[in-house]
Design a protein around this nucleic acid. Structure first.
Length: 354
DNA sequence: CAACCGTGGTG
DNA sequence: TCACCAAGGTT
């Protein structure tokens, strides 16, 4: 029997799809690539303002390759998964050095660039170069899992393998660019995670899950696991001029490469913070003022952030260098800061005004 | 394979 | 308040 999957999908896309997202204009490999990286595990409405600001500052791969890393990270501040930003610039340097600034239209060569995996490489090939390549992102997984009633969690290798086979099978030889956008749009707009709008779906006639009335069973859910609780001190060290000490975080781990407040071991009691700052940072401080703490949830654990404000006496042993800076709050907020730290500094400013 | 890596929206 | 998770990839 003829497979009308792509045909029906494209017909729907022409009428109801999204045709004017920012990365659809002035389409080239660079803009498609940046958008695909930003869109990893991140929703379209979140990405749009970041993409526009990023393109304004880094209009092409050369601008990105030559920019200071701090500049790249500050444009990623609040977007999350900061390794994406570091990998992005590393790949930009590779494209400039090894490909004369032109992205290769080849799946393997694209996947060799850091931050680009199978699905992102395929998206670039289809969207930027119009060549046939199958993508498999969260939207496509959901559509295909339902259409073919593929049981199990897509994170499982066997399930993933089946979905990739289905993705390859349905990808047409014509209009691949539109098809790729179409199946993502269907997943985002019709075949949604909860309460899919099956009434308006162009594929419902042959959708196995819909036919059986089992759309909620697909795709299978991820096995749940308890998130550990962690605790940390975040110190706002303020000198006589009202400047705050910022520290660059190590390149790997949470918030890698971003600027943040100094952390102190949670084993220190509140009455030991003064000594801790003395010993660990070489700074003489006044009695700490505790600011209300809060819990921040990450993908894999909860972090209790306990902030404390300490006034620094005289000139400290710590000055400005590559990894430490004394900055006023407005200057600090222009750095690439993690979202909760940005919020904390904003709130702390209000506290200071009281 | 499983852990790790962020944030904001949603119910 | 909170679990779940969205245009994934790397280690």
């Amino acid at each position: 029997m003829p497979d009308r999957f792509a045909e029906r999908l494209l017909e729907w896309y022409d009428q109801h799809g999204r045709h004017d997202l920012p990365w659809h204009h002035n389409r080239n490999a660079y803009r498609v690539w940046v958008s695909e990286i930003m869109l990893q595990q991140t929703q379209v409405t979140t990405v749009i303002p970041y993409f526009n600001a990023f393109m304004e500052r880094f209009p092409d791969v050369h601008a990105l390759a030559e920019a200071p890393e701090d500049d790249v990270l500050s444009h990623w501040s609040g977007l999350g998964y900061y390794a994406r930003a570091r990998n992005l610039q590393k790949a930009a340097k590779t494209v400039v050095a090894d490909y004369a600034g032109d992205f290769p239209a080849d799946q393997q060569q694209l996947e060799s660039l850091t931050g680009i995996g199978r699905s992102t490489a395929a998206a670039i090939i289809a969207q930027a170069f119009g060549k046939r390549a199958a993508i498999l992102d969260g939207n496509v997984k959901r559509v295909l899992a339902r259409y073919h009633a593929v049981a199990g969690w897509p994170g499982q290798t066997s399930v993933l393998k089946t979905l990739w086979e289905r993705a390859e099978q349905h990808t047409p030889h014509e209009r691949v660019r539109d098809y790729t956008q179409a199946i993502m749009d269907l997943g985002a707009m019709v075949c949604t995670r909860t309460r899919p709008n099956c009434d308006t779906c162009p594929l419902k006639a042959d959708c196995a899950a819909y036919t059986r009335g089992e759309t909620t069973f697909y795709p299978g859910s991820k096995p749940k696991k308890a998130k550990p609780e962690k605790v940390t001190w975040m110190v706002i060290l303020e000198d006589a001029q009202g400047r705050i000490l910022l520290e660059r975080r190590p390149p790997s781990g949470i918030w890698g490469g971003l600027w943040s407040l100094p952390e102190l071991d949670p084993a220190f009691g509140a009455d030991e913070l003064q000594d801790a700052c003395e010993q660990k940072l070489g700074l003489s401080c006044e009695t700490p003022e505790l600011i209300s703490g809060f819990r921040h949830t990450f993908s894999h654990y909860h972090l209790h952030i306990q902030p404390a404000r300490l006034l620094v006496r005289g000139a400290g042993a710590i000055g400005d260098n590559d990894n430490q800076r004394w900055l006023h709050r407005d200057e600090a907020l222009s750095l690439g800061l993690p979202a909760p730290i940005r919020t904390l500094l904003t709130d702390a400013e209000q506290v200071a005004l009281l």
